[in-house]
């Protein structure tokens, strides 16, 4: 898989305060890559340096392809209509407006509304469409579902998956672990300007915790058993229940959520 973005030893300061302390990682073409971190971890700064919106003190950022950007906090003049904003940015970028994209994002339903009349969901959709105008190879999404209701999130997730299917590389900054877990191929965790982890979710599970939690519900009670090897723990337990005439109703094996791992990882880092 080719590299879409390569970052080497990126350093950024605000005044005397160091925000990024020489981070390095790669994003591969066609993957959905998440940047995670608590408030002040440096994820939006990293994203804005990658997008070319912020200058940095040292290091290199190589971006291979055209870029589309959806910002975390974005706005437009309050009296501009949705369709006017799309036309303005399309004309400036000499881009063709793809009617399919407008239809997919339901823009036609609020094309005549002025920006200040749009709901949060409609604004998010509009900004995403603006980011897609240049037909980008790489799409940056900063907290794309913040402020959206469940239906809006599900719809946006579907659209993100469709973009990935078309081969678009997506870099996502999010606080929403469930969103990251269901969408992303790889993640990077930032902690106080340092890169604490880069890899797949599976690698994160292996790095943070090798312990599973087996939950067995029987006709008498529910019990939790920590285990490093599922079969070694589970099989004797089942035999024991059978010997005691206890009926097993449900078995769950849990490795902990991304959120739990993230918190643990951030603390350890």
């Amino acid at each position: 898989m080719n590299t879409a973005i390569q970052i080497k030893n990126l350093k950024k300061q605000y005044g005397n305060q160091s925000v990024l302390n020489g981070i390095s990682f790669e994003v591969k073409q066609g993957e959905i890559f998440a940047l995670l971190g608590g408030n002040g971890a440096g994820k939006t700064t990293t994203l804005e340096c990658m997008e070319g919106l912020k200058k940095y003190e040292s290091g290199t950022i190589q971006v291979n392809g055209t870029v589309g950007i959806q910002l975390q906090s974005a706005s437009l003049p309050k009296h501009i209509k949705a369709k006017e904003a799309i036309q303005l940015f399309a004309k400036w970028n000499k881009a063709q407006i793809d009617d399919k994209i407008l239809a997919n994002f339901g823009i036609n339903r609020f094309a005549e509304k002025q920006y200040h009349q749009l709901s949060t969901r409609q604004k998010r959709r509009l900004h995403l469409v603006l980011a897609l105008l240049r037909n980008p190879d790489i799409l940056f999404l900063d907290e794309p579902t913040a402020g959206l209701d469940l239906e809006g999130r599900a719809s946006l997730h579907e659209q993100i998956r469709q973009l990935k299917a078309k081969g678009v590389t997506i870099i996502l900054a999010s606080h929403d672990m469930a969103e990251v877990e269901c969408l992303c191929d790889r993640i990077a965790i930032l902690n106080k300007g340092n890169l604490a982890f880069v890899g797949t979710l599976e690698q994160l599970h292996q790095t943070v915790s090798k312990q599973y939690c087996i939950t067995i519900t029987t006709n008498r009670k529910t019990e939790h058993y920590p285990s490093e090897h599922i079969s070694e723990t589970l099989l004797p337990l089942l035999a024991q229940y059978q010997a005691q005439g206890i009926e097993v109703l449900d078995i769950q094996v849990n490795r902990g959520s991304l959120e739990q791992h993230f918190i643990k990882f951030a603390k350890e880092a």
Binding site: L71, P77, W92, N93, A131
Partner: peptide, 21 residues
């Protein structure tokens, strides 16, 4: 002020529109 002291400025920059525009 509506353009330059708000997130409109960032949207201009993010979409390749120069700030003098």
């Amino acid at each position: 002020v509506e353009i330059y002291s708000s997130d409109v400025k960032k949207v201009y920059q993010a979409n390749g529109v120069p700030l003098w525009f």
